[in-house]
Design a protein around this nucleic acid. Structure first.
Lengths: 190, 190
DNA sequence: ATGGTGACGACACCAAGTGTCATCACGCCT
DNA sequence: AGGCGTGATGACACTTGGTGTCGTCACCAT
């Protein structure tokens, strides 16, 4: 079987999504995923650092959108304004067509602890990236960490609502709502 | 309550700490840890769910202190007050004698991604527990999540300073400082 | 063609976990 | 004291994730 078609990585992602949805993360082996994709186990690990990573391939782009929007926000913008701009920019990664995919992905992650661990690490990396970007704007540390944490919470809230079948609004709108709610809660808490 | 050679779990934790400090997490095998403890690989996995877990054994107690303090806070206490009480209660787990141990543990974790993943998951579990406890007090959701996130950030800040050799204050004092800084930053951000 | 480059397959190998059964120390009962 | 049950451990085989290494084959530029 010496043939090799293009899109190996995408085929692996697709095969993984299907198989993990059918059988769950633990009951599906890497060998079975690669078999479905017409490849071998070794090739899987050339494209993904480990089995979990096949479900977290868009993260890099998300970081860049966040960081870019924060450092690119107007100089007059406050830390929270910059966070708001970041959420706005992030909306580009979550068009309505990707909602069903995101839902499936979340269903798989919800069923396995290893995947949740990976997700938590990605969250922390994103938060750290936001803190770094805010610092580049001159925001000092207690405020930078707090703003990043707030942004992360707003993002997770918006994402959870976006994935929820009960809602039909666009991500950007949900993000604006979540951030607004958190801002008012913040002023009430102090 | 069987007492065989006794202390199997503690011996495993001690052997693991030593070996992981010497060689790092990835270059030390479970078989080597158990060999040092005078036990077998199988026994290790009867005491710990996986290799990572040997470094996270005190977490259960921490959760209980947090939750207990939050639900046990006086009815007049605000959400932030309850968080403050939780941090105060958590100080019991971090006496000065445990500082060196904590430092070593953090050094090992800092050197390996899997361990950081586990730590992030524990953080998230703690945050979720705090949200649950706050809800029991009648705190509703945007505020509960925000307060829990704030508490987590204060805790991490205090812990980082407590472990830092440059500081010599007690954990409770560092926690009060961190929470106070975050409260003022919160009022400035809104 | 011709040779170089990069992606893939084949194979061996290590380490993390798990299932299963045997064994051995201890407390308890008579 | 001696037998019994229980729970912790050892022994061993097995699966799966993940890596190192080498060979092979398509593609491209010369």
């Amino acid at each position: 079987m010496g043939r090799w078609k293009a899109n190996a990585r995408e085929r692996l992602e697709q095969a993984a999504l299907e198989l993990l949805l059918e059988r769950g993360y633990e009951r599906a082996t890497v060998a079975e995923i690669t078999e479905r994709a017409g490849l071998t186990k070794r090739t899987f690990f050339r494209h993904f650092a480990d089995k979990r990573e096949v479900l977290f391939s868009g993260q890099e782009a998300l970081y860049k959108l966040f960081v870019g929007a924060i450092v690119g926000a107007p100089a007059s913008a406050t830390a929270i304004d910059a966070i708001g701009a970041a959420l706005e920019a992030a909306s580009a990664v979550f068009p309505p067509e990707r909602r069903e995919l995101a839902r499936q992905r979340q269903a798989i992650i919800a069923g396995n602890t290893e995947l949740q661990e990976r997700e938590m690490l990605k969250r922390a990396s994103l938060a750290a990236a936001m803190v770094g970007a805010l610092r580049e704007r001159g925001v000092t540390d207690p405020t930078a960490s707090l703003a990043a944490e707030l942004g992360g919470l707003a993002f997770r809230t918006a994402y959870a609502r976006w994935v929820d079948p009960a809602n039909h609004q666009e991500f950007a709108e949900l993000a604006r709502q979540a951030l607004h709610e958190l801002k008012t809660a913040t002023s009430e808490i102090a």
